[in-house]
Write a protein that binds this DNA or RNA. Structure first.
Lengths: 377, 377
DNA sequence: ACTGCGCCTGAATCTGACG
DNA sequence: ACGTCAGATTCAGGCGCAG
């Protein structure tokens, strides 16, 4: 690797911008996730996707809290002990996760009611800023055979940034496109992992809780850019790696279990990267090149003196040679004039103002689109 | 009152069966919920439904795209200085709630990602046993106006018993009947509270966060028996009381705010106990499941990069990773691209676009049907 | 009376680049 | 760090009014 990239300095006061070598990626690390994350440098990961265990068995997995334990208010000591151990484990891995995550990176954690509340609290307590909780609504969940509760038909994901003012990645347009031109909501209906996709080993399922690729697909498409480095500290059979590879993202997996490692590596090798042209997603206008209104005047797309109106023809404004707009004694930018006339705090002049063409009113944004098509390579 | 009932002894070892007078019910207590619960005897309540403050921590004003301002929840009762202060408050009211709840009673708590994780942890830490987490999927949530996150389209409810071996009430058959003979799942689609149901005071909403009666209806129908006593420590405008009365359950409400108390009492007085035969109208109609084109890409029914054509093979388009279609410089949804290419105002992309299978052209709608068949119960 | 269009509203942690 | 300003951004349902 050795590619240098600039990392924005947002880690506390007085931090300086650092040039950091990109981390070596597309690899599986065999070992304990806390110990292995500890070996990674600060701020090297763009996104962490974590599917932590919640059925910590007594014995090997049981994690002892390091500090003095708070007095249990309750008599249920055994349960408290187990919960405290789980919290300590969660604090430990999330602390490392937070350290290696870039300032503008985000973390996803998935779980069920057994553990997701505890994960959410530790995230908040460590200073992560929750952006959404997402409900994966399973299209085909396992029924509740005994009829004693509601069918447990969903799992919960938490999406969080490092801090309240992080500049995180969210591909809004891509999500809206993926959802037939409606905003993507916080509830996702997706089938559970089964059929061909479910990995087998000796005829039985290779992993008890393999996640569907469609779930990771949406997560990675929404919140990473091509080339971003995604780390999964509980890699299992490598769904995160397989989807990252398909979508042109880099991945790092950490997994303790030998068999899971084997299965994951085979699987990822077999998953083909998508063609570059297919990975493309709808860009936000935010990321499109900007066109000043004045440019349209300069280049003749609009004549100085042209008349613009709002869609209801309530106001009539004149375009001036410098790209400003004159209307009812006002003379300012297309946005300001629109806002002032409406008495609104702000206004998008591009969609507010219209020009007449063939008897129709069209928003001046259409002119901008025409200009962009004509001038972009 | 004065009716005696037997309370099974399940409070730790060596407890004896107690005969307790039934608590006075169907009343509103004005005051602080912690202080007022403290005055109630042990083990006198069958169910607690709690809608505590969410601790939203909103920033500045938020404007809608068309200029209007969002009427945010900025009430003093929702403000806490720190997460620790919120936790302390939660511990305090839940401790009293646990004491007054019968051994076989259950508690419901509703919240959003701002507070629900903390509520869940306190429940677990106090020894409550979580039975389900329920997702209320809002049919008509407020959109995310700035396109910065996923639309926050749900709230979460936690249902918990006093302990792992409680003999709690769950009316399995009633839920299955309510759900068209399918097991009731952990995700409930219900509209938010609006229209006639939304209580007004001087022309504006009487309470910023009034819950829909349909939500309480399902909760009470599922987890209480007729005659049970339901307590709501954050009574607000009394949705819990109104529904309890309709369903023949007894209720106790605790509320600090004078105006909320007034509104609640008026409302409950006006809510008539329900005739058995009227219950049917509460059933929400099953909705035809919608499938976004992007879902077919996510779930592998179509690969990114796949080629689609119209039935006359006049145009050739490429499927992209986000479920958009690329064709002749255009990149948009299946419907928009179809419309633009034909110069039509609109186009049903599902029937317009075809894929090739075994030398035949098939509409992509066929894939949608296949997907539905595979994922619907 | 019915239809269609426009307006209003709902628990919201809701901008970002540049100087 | 802070101020300024360009400009990007919404879905479903209920209700009233016009035709």
């Amino acid at each position: 690797m050795g590619v240098l990239e600039r990392v924005p300095a947002r880690r506390g006061k007085g931090a300086v911008a650092l040039a950091q070598p990109a981390i070596e990626a597309d690899r599986l690390i065999k070992g304990d996730c806390i110990a292995e994350m500890a070996k990674l440098p600060d701020a090297c990961i763009d996104m962490i996707f974590a599917d932590p265990p919640y059925n910590l068995q007594l014995g090997g997995d049981l994690f002892r809290p390091e500090g003095g334990m708070v007095d249990a208010v309750d008599d249920d000591w055994d349960k408290f002990d187990t919960l405290a151990a789980y919290d300590a484990f969660t604090h430990a891995w999330m602390k490392e996760a937070r350290r290696i995550l870039k300032p503008n990176g985000t973390i996803w954690v998935i779980g069920s009611y057994h553990n997701i509340f505890r994960c959410g609290v530790v995230l908040q307590d460590q200073g992560f800023w929750i952006l959404n909780d997402i409900v994966w609504r399973k299209a085909n969940p396992m029924p509740n055979f005994r009829g004693t509760r509601f069918t447990n038909a969903h799992e919960t994901l938490i999406w969080a940034s490092q801090s309240e003012d992080s500049k995180y990645t969210f591909n809004y347009r891509a999500m809206k496109t993926l959802n037939d031109e409606l905003q993507m909501r916080s509830d996702w209906v997706l089938p559970i992992c089964g059929g061909q996709e479910r990995l087998k080993r000796n005829g039985t399922k290779a992993h008890p809780t393999q996640k569907p690729e469609a779930l990771l697909y949406r997560v990675l498409l929404a919140c990473t850019k091509p080339g971003d480095v995604v780390l999964d500290p509980f890699f299992g059979t490598g769904t995160t790696g397989a989807v990252a590879r398909r979508l042109g993202r880099k991945w790092i997996g950490i997994e303790r279990d030998d068999t899971y490692c084997e299965v994951a590596l085979e699987r990822i090798a077999a998953s083909l990267p998508l063609d570059e042209s297919a990975i493309g997603i709808m860009q936000s206008p935010r990321q499109a090149p900007k066109v000043a209104f004045g440019t349209l005047v300069e280049t003749g797309y609009l004549e100085p003196g042209a008349i613009l109106t709002d869609v209801k023809r309530r106001w009539k404004a004149h375009v001036r040679a410098d790209g400003s707009l004159a209307c009812e004694g006002l003379n300012a930018s297309i946005h300001k004039v629109g806002a002032t006339l409406q008495g609104a705090p702000s206004c998008n002049g591009w969609t507010f103002w219209h020009y007449e063409a063939d008897g129709d009113l069209k928003p001046i944004d259409a002119l901008r689109q025409t200009y962009l098509l004509a001038t972009q390579p």
